[in-house]
Design a protein around this nucleic acid. Structure first.
Lengths: 159, 159
DNA sequence: CTCATTATTGGAAATGGTTCCCATTATCAA
DNA sequence: TTGATAATGGGAACCATTTCCAATAATGAG
């Protein structure tokens, strides 16, 4: 039952301290929500969930913390085209590496893990090539497919 | 000098008419700017450029036209993370298919065409698989790499 | 443990890209 | 030419995200 880190707090405390950031109740709560969530959440989603655990939280702090987390690479920030950013914990906890399939009709997002291995393998090679050629330190990649889900295809696409 | 379509107007008139849209001076000017541009432009960039050709244009019309163009697949809309969307003509005119390398430090964007063939080949296969499995009609894909360009890497990344 | 330093906070206001509204104008088919 | 109506543009509305700042809380030193 007990993990290997009893007495030393959650896994991310070390990361935070290592970067000179303080541990606060708000940040604890945000990380808690993110760890629990298995979907990509908007800042407001996160704010609401955190608020029910820790009502003193402010939306501003949510944004600030998410920015820090994204900078540290603990959180990935996505844009699915509906005007608000989505956040999800970078792989490590529950979530495995996946990419997104976005319906441009209803904004539904499907996480897929199929083909991921092949994709990641190619991406690694491409990353290497690009890093060398353009002298970039690549830290991340984004792959998304856009299209219409079955429902939206029926509505719009003829028939 | 003369193209093969003298007398019948620009290439996109047909596409527009085919979709039931009217041809207007503003739309002409917007397409003109987009065709000329070889970079991804923001809506405001486009507005300013069009404004110098056709001062009567309004920003609202630029947004409206871009949305139509994106829906028709003539224009691709990108988010590079700086809070404003970028648009570029889908391949066909000058531009060849490319992907983007985005510097998270200074927001510089590099278009690259290296590795594209391999990537596109894999993407095609993946698209096929995803379409079948999730019953999606995939119309588009997005690949971007994020990282720090040489300059930003020097500033931030130690040294 | 206490204190001082200073990062962090939350609320309200500001920002800024994008969309909405609507009276006016322009396109296009007949 | 004309009528139906799509398209326009300007300003206001919208809304996610940032900024500002005085109050608060986390941390390290003593």
């Amino acid at each position: 039952m007990r993990g290997r880190n009893e007495g030393m707090g959650p896994w991310w405390h070390g990361r935070f301290r290592g970067c000179g950031y303080r541990i606060t109740a708000g940040r604890d709560a945000i990380l808690d929500v993110l760890t629990r969530a298995n979907k990509h959440l908007s800042a407001e989603d996160i704010y609401l969930k955190v608020h029910s655990i820790y009502p003193a939280i402010g939306l501003t702090s949510v944004y600030r913390t998410l920015e820090i987390l994204a900078d540290m690479g603990l959180v990935l920030k996505f844009d699915f085209g509906d005007g608000r950013a989505r956040y999800e914990l970078a792989e490590g906890s529950k979530s495995s590496h996946h990419h997104h399939l976005v319906c441009t009709g209803c904004n539904r997002v499907i996480d897929y893990t199929d083909f991921i291995d092949e994709e990641v393998e190619l991406l690694k090679r491409t990353e290497k090539g690009l890093s060398d050629k353009y002298n970039f330190r690549i830290t991340n990649h984004l792959i998304q497919f856009y299209g219409l889900c079955d429902k939206c295809a029926k509505k719009k696409g003829g028939e």
